[in-house]
Design a protein around this nucleic acid. Structure first.
Lengths: 214, 214, 214, 214
DNA sequence: GATGAATGAGTCTTCATTCAT
DNA sequence: GATGAATGAAGACTCATTCAT
């Protein structure tokens, strides 16, 4: 993290502001043009600072991208974890995760696009960061599965390591559709309901399934 | 397409080879470095041709990427469609699709990585090509769903437009995991079985579900 | 115009200097090598700036050429017009024009060569600029002719549209000779006297002619 | 000269044809695009030969330009000299030269444009060729002047070295006007009459002048 | 800290020229 | 001789990064 604190006065607030302003500007610019087609000058302009100022807060262009992931994803993971913890039943948790994920995408279109598009860039970066922060996010899902299996709600043969990817992938592809197409054909609620629906029915134990039948 | 045919003799083969050689080289180079970090010089070297030769077969760097999609994806779609048609039962078709998709990724790691990574680049290109060729691929899935619904094997409330993305997304995320991590934790067979398993159980009608229970 | 003014202090002078420095360097380099054989790197070196700096002041190589015409020719035309206006008699004006034109060429050899050589380039550019700025210059001559005709000093059958080209062409060819040959066989004064002499005698009315005879 | 003669049979004709075809094609292409903006490939296409064939008849691109001057101008000079010799009176000769020059330009627009435009390219070439062939052409004029001075028809103080340039320049600028503007405002006859008129009256001796007065 | 003019390394692309067929 | 695919040197232009003010 590269916050520049001077002292506990008004100045530190202004300075922290600039770090934030540049980051927000970068999210917007990266989302519109992609990382490689974005210019530092554009980000600086969008943030209303001079080109050189960007380098007071970030080491280089790449560092801005990394920081976006570090700071923004970190916050999101924390938020999701907190909300999931509020649910009790693993079925409910899965549905909650789906709804939350899609809602977050909807609320943070630009950030979602940056993560979706740039996270795929094959570079040293992705290998380092995706595997770290991102694994943490995916593991929220596998934890839910394991909990459900322990409670004999989810079938034992479901492999959490595969399921977490499948579930996340389903949501992610749905998000991509939203991010890329300007109009939204399906509501978040509908999509979340449908997708978690497929997976839920798909992994329930016979016992849980029968209990759910009318 | 820019094949250079001279006549139906050995010569034409060598010439067409060069188009192919450059394309294969580009897939390899793009897969390793990403489109933006790849140099024409690298592709030329990998293809054992001069830099300028690349421009005899392609208009520019970008055109190479487009051609990869046009030619390679087109062939893949054709192959998948053909194989799906050989199955009868929609359940079988879904499983077949999953297995085929993951197998194709495994067999064409570099191509898969290029498609996975570069397909996300938000550019005029993606909007045109992804939406065209790619939609065709996704619609193979929704067709299967509709057939299953007509046969009352899949639940009527399943929305094909959402399902196709969820199903593809699940497979795609699994593929990405393979493409990015060098070692493969799960076999294609296992992953295909698991993923199609989730979705199959998840969308069966009650009737079909009961029939499937022991 | 791309002058970069900061404020009315020394700084603004230095910055404006760079625009000027590059322009002067380009005139020199273009004059020696011709436009197409000149490299941006040469111009930059001659101007003592980095290659990239050239692009802070001009859009591209071509833009430098256009700017040379726009800025330099404009100034020259203004100067010539002012001096011509100071003369009264149309005969005197013609002689003055000839002398002035040749003097300007002599004083600005490089600029003259650039204008002479590059002005002939058949390109979109020439059609636009030559016809605009250049026509303005030629029309100084036809105005003089018309004035002389009104005063019955010049013969009525002289066609100003042809005369202006003939007169300018005569001076221009003489200049070319100077620009291209390193040594100068005839002085400006001699050449101006001779050339304006031919044309003057050539277009005087009988009346004016007789008056001029001893 | 690069004619390729095989033998005095049909083949040699065909081969000489190709030299000519390429030269004519080059004149056309150079006239339209200028030397630097013309591609060997364009010339080859215009001449209906393969790119490589051009190099069987010319050493390089530049050699084509040189050959155009050598062969075409040589022929023109010969023609002009012959026609001038047919006139007797130097006054008549000057008028004849003017008319001939403008007519030649009108009949060979493309060639005229190439000579006009590319002759100005400052390069080693121009310095060598312009000064040789071209001087020969200009000297036709100065010879006429000297003849006229010997016959006391032209004033002794007229300097042939200046006059030849002035006279040629006047005609040349008129030609340029035609070559560059698509429509022709003045006829060859009118322009030739006017221009030779200015100069004739301009350099006549008093004696000749009085004799010419009504 | 903030600025933004200046830098110059890096790369796509063009095209004259060659040479195997 | 004729071909045209292949070559690769060369150069315009971009833009991340620096640094004097």
């Amino acid at each position: 993290m590269l916050y520049h604190y001077h002292a506990c006065d008004g100045l530190s607030v202004r300075v922290a502001d600039k770090h934030e302003k540049i980051l927000k500007a970068a999210i917007k610019v990266f989302a519109h043009n992609g990382f490689f087609n974005s210019r530092i000058a554009e980000i600086a302009e969008e943030a209303n600072v001079a080109d050189g100022t960007v380098y007071l807060y970030f080491n280089n262009k790449y560092d801005i991208l990394i920081t976006i992931f570090e700071e923004e994803i970190g916050e999101i993971i924390a938020r999701v974890k907190q909300r999931i913890a509020a649910c009790d039943d693993p079925r409910e948790k899965l549905e909650c995760f789906a709804h939350l994920h899609l809602s977050l995408v909807e609320e943070n279109r630009d950030l979602a696009e940056v993560i979706q598009v740039e996270l795929r860039q094959s570079s040293k970066f992705m290998k380092e960061y995706r595997n770290k922060k991102f694994a943490e996010y995916l593991n929220i899902i596998s934890q839910i599965v394991r909990q459900g299996q322990a409670q004999e709600i989810f079938r034992a043969e479901v492999m959490p390591g595969i399921f977490k990817r499948a579930f996340f992938g389903a949501l992610d592809e749905m998000s991509r559709f939203w991010v890329l197409s300007s109009r939204k054909k399906y509501s978040v609620a509908t999509a979340a309901k449908q997708i978690s629906g497929y997976f839920l029915c798909g992994i329930l134990t016979e016992k849980a399934l029968v209990a759910a039948l009318p």
